[in-house]
Write a protein that binds this DNA or RNA. Structure first.
Ligand SMILES: NC(=O)c1ccc[n+]([C@@H]2O[C@H](COP(=O)([O-])OP(=O)(O)OC[C@H]3O[C@@H](n4cnc5c(N)ncnc54)[C@H](O)[C@@H]3O)[C@@H](O)[C@H]2O)c1
Ligand SMILES: NC(=O)c1ccc[n+]([C@@H]2O[C@H](COP(=O)([O-])OP(=O)(O)OC[C@H]3O[C@@H](n4cnc5c(N)ncnc54)[C@H](O)[C@@H]3O)[C@@H](O)[C@H]2O)c1
Lengths: 287, 287
DNA sequence: ATGCGTTTGTGAACGTGTGCACAAAGATGG
DNA sequence: CCATCTTTGTGCACACGTTCACAAACGCAT
């Protein structure tokens, strides 16, 4: 039963393969691309203060990165600096904007105008960089009549028309997780090839479609992990059984499977637990 | 003029240094930590369907990753699988939860209850994983009276009290960018050691404080970059001057600096530009 | 012109992350 | 108890990303 990758490749954010193949075409590493907007923001601020040139050291500080990294990043774009002087701010703003495709207009649709969709629709920093909200879409008839940020919320039925007629290639999904894959499929079917997904769902898309996700819950969990480490709190001493090699562990595994079996509720000892390091797992593993 | 790193290290998300030092302490790579929440979500779904065991292949598909990667990730946690069978779902849910610190309660404060702050406060998936909104805070007197998601919005004055008395170690910043660093400083001063920042600002924090950022604008720009590539649209043929080595390029640089000089508006030829590959930059570089 | 101080651009070393491929471990059936 | 089949856990090779350190390039003053 060979599990051949199904033809729709699930290209999520942390998948280097697809994304890299694209960007390596002309040699800009993905990690660099992800930092360009950061540099651009810092440069824009300098530009507004009419600063003519900036050194890699200064700009790196403003962007919160290592200066060597910044120089290497810029080197992928070309030689836009002047030795002994630094970089011309205006010129660099233009070059990075161009490289990121920000010199063109990118119409986007937002699907799912609930709490988050509303916030995004109202977000000013949206339009500031060439991204224009082409339409707000929702399935709920109660929502469809209303307006958000001056734009009318339109019905999902109009999705295809809007995407095609306005040449929308970027879609933002802010529906509940259950609807995300369906919405995604419709967007892709209509011609959208880049998706920003706020729903906590793994989206599956065909090759050639990029998906990036924003997941609040994941971010918090990562923070919690490090927070736990800081507290010197080795995450509850592991059962000796599981560290032991050989048949002992196997027996433990067997027991686990035999015990839990069905629809047992969450492993009991889960609640508050005032970060006491001692936290035995007899509750979950009745050995 | 040696530019010694100032003692407050600007540890942003994409800075491996600080984060890694922490997690390497007991050997879980940062990339793995970032995927654990993904696995946990998939496992929780299986658990709700009362699936007793799952193979690395199945789980990997559900989480949208390579199965070898998943197995290696789990190997950092210990040997929790059974060869020939797979992983016990309930047990693995517990192990990952514990590793992520989700078996304890994490009170968080949200600062800046505007569009986004409201949406976050209303977000259900928040509390579902041990994260509890301890307080909503804002500086605007008009907002302070109101309630969001059943919680009262309290004034910034109360920040320190709340953080200390409720042992808050995680703070979420959803203020305008201008206020973010100030708010951050106050949070840190009060004792918060993990910050999730939604404002498009580079935060500077002392060592030992983790910052993660969520930046919609950056995500869109990355998508735009790849979108441009897909359109076969080499980002507007580079001026020959800049590719040429030697004195020619230097002269060009000189010209740029001399020309632009002051507060010149955005490099003119910036507008719509119907994705025509030909887009000369004489406007920005009057050579 | 020449020399001096500054800053870029990059080669090279190193650390991290990914994916293949396979031996070893265990389940299962006879 | 043995044979066979499934699936884990991991050694290994390679790709990617980061950082150091320094020669070459440039501006500027003399
Ligand atoms: N609110 C937050 O702060 C937050 C944070 C992180 C993630 N999320 C995620 O973002 C998504 C949206 O969150 P929310 O709080 O705005 O939820 P919400 O319930 O307020 O809004 C969801 C909207 O989607 C619409 N919708 C439902 N099914 C649809 C469909 N098939 N097609 C089109 N529209 C449909 C609903 O009518 C509703 O207006 C959820 O997946 C949530 O998990 C939200
Ligand atoms: N709305 C979005 O979808 C979105 C998306 C991405 C990023 N952001 C960023 O998130 C942040 C918030 O966005 P928003 O749309 O909710 O803005 P908003 O203006 O609606 O809300 C900001 C809130 O912060 C409060 N505030 C201002 N200064 C404060 C201070 N010093 N201390 C405490 N509170 C203070 C204001 O009173 C207001 O209630 C902004 O930085 C924005 O760039 C927003």
């Amino acid at each position: 039963m060979a599990i051949g990758r199904p033809s729709p490749s699930s290209s999520q954010t942390p998948d280097p393969g697809a994304a890299r193949r694209t960007s390596r075409a002309r040699g800009i590493p993905e990690a660099t691309v992800a930092r360009l907007p950061l540099y651009l923001r810092a440069l824009t601020a300098l530009s507004e203060r009419s600063v003519p040139t900036v050194s890699s050291e200064e700009l790196a500080a403003a962007a919160g990165v290592n200066s060597a990294k910044l120089r290497k990043d810029f080197s992928y774009l070309g030689s836009y600096g002047t030795r002994g002087v630094g970089y011309d701010v205006e010129y660099l703003v233009y070059q990075i904007s161009r490289e990121l495709g920000l010199t063109q207009d990118w119409p986007v649709v937002i699907v799912g105008i609930g709490n988050l969709g509303h916030a995004l629709a109202n977000y000013g920093g949206f339009a500031s960089r060439g991204f224009r909200v082409a339409a707000l879409l929702d399935a709920d008839p109660n929502v469809v009549g209303s307006t958000a940020a001056g734009l009318p919320v339109r019905h999902m039925d109009e999705l295809e028309d809007i995407v095609v007629s306005q040449h929308v290639s970027i879609g933002v999904i802010t529906t509940p997780p259950g609807a995300a894959q369906l919405v995604c499929d419709r967007l892709v079917e209509a011609g959208v090839t880049s998706i920003l997904n706020f729903a906590p769902t793994v989206l599956t898309v065909p090759d050639g479609v990029d998906v990036r996700k924003v997941d609040l819950s994941i971010e918090l969990q990562i923070l919690a992990f490090h927070e736990q480490r800081k507290a010197g709190d080795e995450p509850a001493g592991d059962s000796v059984l599981d560290r032991a090699p050989g048949p002992v562990r196997a027996a433990a595994a067997k027991l686990r499977r035999a015990a839990g079996g069905g629809k047992s509720a969450e492993p009991a000892k889960n609640a508050p637990a005032a970060q006491g390091p001692e936290d035995d797992l007899s509750a979950v593993m009745p050995a």
